[in-house]
Design a protein around this nucleic acid. Structure first.
Lengths: 259, 259
DNA sequence: CGAACGGTTGAGAGAACTCAACTGAAGTGG
DNA sequence: CCACTTCAGTTGAGTTCTCTCAACCGTTCG
């Protein structure tokens, strides 16, 4: 695996509490209230900003790498993926977005988008001019706090991705991905034990720093272990009867790796 | 798109876009003004926020994982590393911070810190209560924009890390890391062809998702290829005579990997 | 002085990758 | 309606890159 940056400086105080989950973790909040909070936030955006609403369908792109930055977007419904392309042509899924998430934060600093935002399903997108948002934030502290929170969450999420990719073996990464996806659904009041991964094996692999074959093999192994099941029609519809069991399955490997 | 450190070091030279190992790159800021802009931003923070100043020394920790969130911090000088620890004990260097960078953004959403911020050198840290910052932002649009920009940059940086870790082979990752570090120095008006990596091999490896042995081997290989050199006294003082050559060295592999 | 630490290097092992064949489903066009 | 193609996914075999384990060196520090 990888080196633990052994005791980088200082002995510990208490470091278990929040942070909760391994790898691609879950919001430490209760699903019941988290969903309400998302709805609340959307209501605030709606009333304060009066965003331009738009419905897009799977495959539609709301902004592209290289485009000038002008608007931020909020997902009122649907699923998006963010795909970044490096100068030398490497592609990378760098983010997944769900209801209540903002899109476009990455573009503020450069004043241009550095990734494509692609809908994975029919979705309703709300858009606001960034300048309007700035003005509104100055007038409405609650809105400003909300925006900061959203950016902060994105930073945390990215770090969790980094940790997962750089410290977990392949199967644990896939499980962490499933966990992340399921939690994102659960928090929004959607079924988390049965849902559609809206990504191909290749995209999942890309997101996790694995090849599509490895992803496929891991999923097959999990099916054989009866920890997940697929709809025979569409191999993207997954069923996860017992998340604890799934976690326990990879927990062992992780623990072994640590000692 | 990207700039080599050598060029950034002399602000007047014109930029090539050398498609660099885009992995761990720098913000596409204009080299001519980037350093000035950092100074400007610090001045704005100073005048508008009147931050509490403090000097810390190598190894000091300004916040710890689990601590309640109250302040944000700005680096007026020095170098920091951010170390995240997952629930199951995996450690991960999730960020490196330089003069002008903010620390603590990740804590806004959860209202608690999820990583340790450790000084890698003597540093001057400016601190402001988050609530004060919010108020000041409402009153000073320029400040608010600056904060957003800083958070946006952090998001971009994290994505570049993700891409590097998940798409580049070991040697390219190490080179990308050197590139990132050199650029960060160059942008701040510091020598980029000769500097101290302030991290152990283990920490570099951890940051890049590699083992310390792999990092050591890659560096040795680069030394053998005369692309870098070390101060024999301290093996952390690196010298990079020609960044183009270094980039070209791994470019081949990357290209081959793509086809 | 010996212990601890950071770093280097070698040999062998193993996890993930590459290449390749195969399946089933979906779409195209004659 | 049926070849034909294309695409997503699965699986196997062999390869390779990185990791693991281990020995070793030079510094620093108690």
């Amino acid at each position: 695996m990888q080196t633990t940056a052994a005791q980088l400086a200082t002995p510990t105080t208490k470091r278990h509490d929040i942070a909760a989950v391994a790898g691609l973790g879950m919001p430490a909040a209760l699903p019941t209230s988290a969903g309400q909070r998302i709805a609340e936030r959307l209501r605030l955006i709606e009333t304060v900003l009066g965003p331009k609403r738009r419905v897009v369908k799977a495959g539609d792109v709301i902004y592209r790498s290289g485009e000038a930055f002008s608007h931020l977007h909020v997902l009122n419904s649907g699923f998006f993926k963010l795909i970044s392309v490096s100068a030398d042509g490497r592609e990378q899924v760098v983010g997944l977005k769900f209801r209540g998430d903002w899109l476009g934060f990455g573009a503020i600093a450069r004043n241009a988008h550095a990734c494509d935002a692609v809908a994975m399903d029919t979705a309703e997108v709300w858009s606001v001019r960034y300048e309007d948002l700035l003005r509104a934030c100055a007038a409405h502290p609650a809105l400003m706090e909300m925006v900061h929170e959203a950016m902060s969450s994105e930073i945390m999420r990215d770090r969790e991705s980094i940790m997962a990719i750089s410290t977990l073996p392949a199967d644990a990464r896939v499980v962490a991905f499933l966990h992340y996806w399921a939690d994102s659904l659960a928090v929004r009041g959607l079924r988390a034990d049965q849902f559609s991964l809206r990504l191909s094996r290749a995209e999942i692999g890309n997101y996790l720093g694995l090849t599509l074959e490895t992803v496929s093999r891991v999923l097959s192994k999990l099916v054989r272990a009866r920890l997940i099941a697929f709809n025979q029609r569409s191999r993207r519809d997954i069923c996860i009867p017992d998340f604890h069991a799934l976690e326990a399955f990879v927990q062992r490997r992780t623990a072994r790796d640590l000692h």
